[in-house]
Design a protein around this nucleic acid. Structure first.
Lengths: 215, 215
DNA sequence: TAGATTGTTAATCGATTAACAATC
DNA sequence: TAGATTGTTAATCGATTAACAATC
């Protein structure tokens, strides 16, 4: 009876399905076949059907999928029907930018607090939330049911801060620091390594230029 | 004689190798075996050797790899030995945060200009660079040898702006807008979809909670 | 030389695609 | 009912891991 583990490859595609279905829903489209969706999304219809069937049979033979229903189901699978309070740790440029990003609230992620080690930043406001000192972080996490910490501190500070967050009972870390965190397996970590992403872009530019030179 | 295409899976791992090797180099480590590196990075030694051998034999039997040499080689493969001028299009919170991020310069990415459609933002300064009006963008790209555009405009504006950038001769787009861009194949696109990343985190939190409930 | 470790071939594993019976 | 399209099994493809001869 135990659920088979879903591969991260599949999970990584769910947000994109969710996005396309949301747009179709907003356009008033009622139903869509895996074939039609595959054309829109530039993937195979087979992959769409396989991916969805990891979670259950959401379609109907001869009809396809009901857009709104499938949209809601994927949202539920992604856990977007729950609310998660999050804090931002590190109120530098990136931390403040993320705090100001209002779309997270639409998906159930509630910006609840922001912290910085620098006394000259403490007291500033980010979208109505006062930047707090690092000393307050453990208490705040416990008292405010904080599940997610967004880690936007410098690389050098990240391991120590991550350890504190784990000790304070955080469930998940959205890690923007350019290090691999070493935390217990039950703590979920999602890395956003911007410079890795930029290097990939650099590789592809470079490769394309070399291909051109060869012709 | 034509080079075989390297898979994006391999390319995606190169920046991480580069990061670990850079740290080893800074610590003064001279040589490392695939076995030792595999322990540090928590991947298999076999994968490391396979990945590297896509680009040539950088090691020596019985010795391992010279850290500094391998670091430099991977940097070269990633195109980090070249300079790329980039502009930021969209001077909102995220665009300004990226403009203020100074580490890109260390990797050869030069912050050259920033643009916004909003007249009340035009004229502001981001790290010494004046925010320019969108009307100036084509001229600026041509006159300043701009290869990369960082796209931090709202989702709704992204397709039209991307099209303008392509017309103006940009080579690559680092796309932070939450849409899939439709550009010619020779334009390199690297997507950073922050909300997709957050949804993946949400899924994994949710899954973990359900697993706990089952016990 | 003996020991260590690469580079590379072969085996395995997992993910994607194709095919088609089931069924709306 | 006939046509369409799913859900699912089988085939293929590609990526990862294991094994080992080559060689420093």
């Amino acid at each position: 009876m135990d659920e088979k583990e879903i591969s991260q490859a599949v999970i990584g595609r769910l947000p994109r399905y969710f996005r396309y279905l949301g747009e179709l829903k907003d356009e008033g489209v009622e139903r869509i076949s895996s074939q039609e969706l595959s054309v829109l999304m530039k993937v195979t219809a087979s992959q769409i059907r396989q991916d969805l069937n990891n979670f259950g049979g959401f379609g109907q033979q001869g009809y396809g999928y009901n857009v709104e229903h499938l949209y809601n189901e994927i949202g539920r699978i992604l856990g977007l029907d729950r609310q998660h309070n999050f804090i931002i740790v590190g109120a530098g440029n990136l931390g403040r930018a993320l705090g100001n990003y209002i779309n997270f609230e639409k998906r159930g992620f509630i910006f609840s607090g922001i912290f910085d080690q620098n006394p000259s930043i403490v007291g500033m406001e980010v979208r109505g939330v006062r930047v707090m000192a690092m000393e307050e972080i453990e208490r705040f996490i416990r008292e405010n049911n904080i599940g997610i910490a967004v880690l936007t501190v410098p690389k050098s500070a990240a391991p120590v801060v991550a350890e504190r967050l784990v000790q304070a009972g955080i469930r998940a870390i959205w890690n923007f620091a350019h290090v691999d965190l070493n935390v217990p397996a039950q703590i979920q970590v999602e890395n956003v390594h911007l410079s890795d992403s930029l290097m990939k872009l650099s590789y592809n530019i470079n490769r394309y230029m070399k291909e051109q030179e060869m012709l």
